[in-house]
Write a protein that binds this DNA or RNA. Sequence first.
RNA 1: UGUCCUGUGGUGUAAUUGGCAACACGUCUGACUCUGGAUCAGAAGAGUCCAGGUUCGACCCCUGGCAGGACAACCA
Length: 568
Amino acid sequence: MIQNDFPGKGKNEEERSLNFIEQIITEDIRSGKNESRVHTRFPPEPNGYLHIGHAKSICLNYGLAEKFNGLYNLRFDDTNPLTEEIEYVDSIMEDVRWLGYDWEDRLYYASDYFEQLYGWAEKLIGKGKAYVCELSAEEISAHRGTPTRPGTESPYRNRSVEENLSLFRQMRNGDFKEGEKVLRAKIDMSSPNMHMRDPVLYRIIHATHHRTGDKWCIYPTYDYAHGQSDSIEGITHSICTLEFEVHRPLYDWFISELEIFPSRQIEFARLNLSYTIMSKRKLLQLVREGHVAGWNDPRMPTISGLRRRGYTPESIRYFADRIGVAKRDNVIDVALLEHSVREDLNKKATRVMAVLNPVRVVLTNYPEGESEEVDAVVNPEMPELGKRKVPFSREILIERDDFMEDPPRKFFRLAPGREVRLKYAYIIKCEEVVKNSRGEITEIRCTYDPLTRSGLPDANRKVKSTIHWVSAPHGREVEVRLFDRLFLKEDPDEVEEGKDFKSNLNPDSLKVTKGYISSGIGNAVTLDKFQFERLGYFCVDPDSTPQKPVFNRTVTLRDAWARIGKNQ
RNA sequence: UGUCCUGUGGUGUAAUUGGCAACACGUCUGACUCUGGAUCAGAAGAGUCCAGGUUCGACCCCUGGCAGGACAACCA
């Protein structure tokens, strides 16, 4: 239902080739595997906010289920009470829902399965496939060897089933201190795959869990919990990122030893975005150290940040679709993300005229004290939305950038002796420039041609350009927040010796300024989107009040003139 | 000096699974335009990491290199 609601998707859907995961699923359906059922899941750990990389995963997992008429779950991977919080659970649900996905009644928590998982652990012990180990964390690590050197077996490895069972039950009972004992699988300490060297299944953590409270003091590790949770839920295709590829043999080992439903793990390459960091740890650091205003700071690549920035769910889903899915490491150009919002907002955003860096223009032949209203379209992409009225008068504000006293050849806008069209209004001609003692332009004096008012029969005289404007007495002052990329470098992690990613922070990533709006924002509420004509897309920030509107710049318009400037 | 994964225009993804490389973003032209936006038309840009091999024919298969990534939490 939400699949085909953005441009570029839909019409060619049939012809588009399948990505490698779709090919696997298509083949599984064809062969009748799992009764040709498709069931996926998105399994976030509630220890941080979701970011655009998670959006890729959500769109992938859920999009696949939709495409193949399957189901999808939301499951919190909450096996570590030390780092997980209910605040994150809530934000994650909000973000997934906002993206446009509905997991219906299929909301699960790994913690729901603790009892089952525990039972299976006893089963492994019974089979002689797991044992209680009393080595310290450091010792276990040392015994594990290195990727190039085999490990050595724990002295506790060959305890009897009975002893393991009673020890494990004591662990559950809380008879031991943290770190004193763990339950490990008994696999192969000389395996070339580190994850098969007797991985830890359970550790003792005397902490209150956000859902199970104090019921448990032993908690399953990721490896022991994740695959089995998939299995319990009947997940057919468990899609995760590349770093879990080496875990797959272990994932399969549990399925085989426990003889449970065989979910299949498939790995894809996580999203990397230029000029952006995606590490939860680093994002948390930016928040904690105050480099940004919070998880939902509009400069953050978090879903909540993008939402506040003015991104739409459709634009993010479109983006996720465009970037594709594969197994090789990739860095997507932020320009594609920006293209995605422009694409969507161009069709949706109400047009409004606003001047952010004003210079006063006086129309010397316009009667003093008078004003009128001109018609402006609400959105040229949707003519059916009709027109809006914009006040016009003798004194107006235009963008300082739209005037040059000594213009270069390719500058089409206002200059001494030159004419431009004031959008929706008249053609004006610059007659005189007024400066202060410092030589700064304080006022531009022009004449207007009354016969050229938009809509009039003789109004269509050719001029080099059309500029936006705001009637000075009618202009409404608003706060505007201009965002730029958070980092100066394409790869923020590329740093000199001894420095970290924060040294690449862009000091000018946020510029707060005043702007003047002509009309048309009405009673705009938080996150309402507008196009400030010729400037970019803006949305109402939650800080906004009716007395003091605040706008965030989502993204600028493509700007050919700016590109000319850059190339010179 | 182990195991696994990956290597296609600037970026990302394709190539119906052996028939001389397509699409998107970006870039650059031009048209149109009361947004230097949008739209439309077009262009440049890779011969598929390298070297062999199989084949009438290889991005695709084989061998050997090279390069990048992942793995040594009681994180996920």
